[in-house]
Amino acid sequence: MEQILKNLFDFQRFARDPALQRIIDEAENYTEAIELSDDMLDLAAGGTAIDPQKIKGAKK
């Protein structure tokens, strides 16, 4: 199954099925939101400033 998934997702980089692309994009956006919320918690606790690139990324 792993090899089939590798093949199918590689084919996706070519064919760009919209439903599958939405799933990939959602996963990536979800991880960016976690990173951003971790940074904000850190900032609230008096930590270092948020990397502007991360904010930019979260607006996608």
Partner: peptide, 19 residues
């Protein structure tokens, strides 16, 4: 299970439904 049997655009939609 050759690539020709499953490497079709329809399979990508089916994968999305399964996911």
């Amino acid at each position: 299970l050759t690539e020709e049997s499953y490497m079709k655009e329809e399979t990508l939609s089916e994968l999305a439904s399964a996911l």
